[in-house]
Design a protein around this nucleic acid. Structure first.
Lengths: 174, 174
DNA sequence: TATATTTGTGTAACCAGTTACTTAAATTGA
DNA sequence: TCAATTTAAGTAACTGGTTACACAAATATA
């Protein structure tokens, strides 16, 4: 039992200790923690949905009908990622597809009647979840703004490009 | 070619537009972007290492010898995650293991001679990478501090717990 | 001392993304 | 008009994490 107490001692977070080097892993660690916790929430509440589906629901409520490509552009996800999400939602009966008459390559996606019926219930969870994010950000008033700046920088020139440039500069100053 | 220009029009980021709701997905999107860009960097430079290995290298330089469990506690990764990383590093000849004499369950991990020999080269890339993160954070002076606050909050009570509580409060105030 | 519990590692199956490739349809342009 | 190019969607294989489970070794306990 004494052992048990020793286990509980707070361990300083190594990834935080190493500062800039640990940031990438911390981003993944936090994103994973949120993801798995959300999945657990839905599972424990018997909800038949998955974490990212709210994004699709919101888009298809706003736009009535969209294609895979349109959604992947909006979310800035790769299109195979969207295909996977949509296939699951189709299997669950929340989304249906029909081939576009004008352009037979395009799949027109819409919410099903079942989806519309269940939306009010889902909304309750999404609202509570949004409140959770607001709570988490409460003491971090600059976070969203500064996070956006980082995203923009990465979009403008990615990690690889920047690091190669830094590498070259290091060599030159030797 | 006119089409091409239309494609380049800046699309407002939907995940940013929906504010709090989009944050989780944005965290994953950024973390993935950094991960894949790092992999590409190593690949294009012909380096025989992968993104997270620097963490193991740092730990094993500091501590000489560690076990799977010690590393997973330090990084706050699940132990199977560490097993996977270490297996790859063993296969690449950067890490070797021997069973502990005192406790035959424990695997003692150490860096190989090859690892020590290559470290100076790797360090150059890691230094340039650290500089990249510093550059990305340049206009976000509060980011690390506020990110830490969020991590601590999630550690203290996770997304599921918080959201269930918010849900209950919403019901009560109805 | 014998049994129950805990601990360290390993394995399997899953998850939400990715890149690379394929195929068919639409569009472009010589 | 017909061949070349582009675009939309789908598929395969991979990635770096996760949880759940198994098992042997060590430790605690009755």
């Amino acid at each position: 039992m004494c052992n048990q107490l020793l286990k509980l001692k707070i361990m300083k977070d190594f990834l935080t200790e190493i500062e800039f080097v640990g940031l990438t892993s911390r981003l993944k660690r936090l994103s994973d923690a949120l993801l798995y916790s959300t999945k657990e929430l839905y599972k424990s509440e018997g909800l038949d949905i998955e974490p990212n589906w709210n994004l699709i629901f919101i888009l298809l409520q706003e736009n009535e009908a969209m294609t895979i490509t349109e959604i992947s552009e909006k979310l800035q996800f790769s299109h195979p990622a969207v295909v996977k999400i949509i296939n699951k939602m189709k299997k669950n009966g929340h989304v249906e597809t029909k081939t576009d008459d004008q352009d037979k390559r395009r799949q027109i996606l819409t919410l099903t009647e079942k989806a519309h019926r269940q939306l009010p219930l889902f909304e309750k969870y999404w609202t509570a979840g949004r409140q959770t994010v607001m709570d988490l950000l409460e003491d971090s008033p600059n976070f969203l703004e500064e996070f956006l700046k980082i995203e923009e920088k990465v979009n403008q020139s990615d990690y690889k490009e920047r690091t190669l440039k830094n590498l070259k500069n290091d060599k030159l100053s030797n």
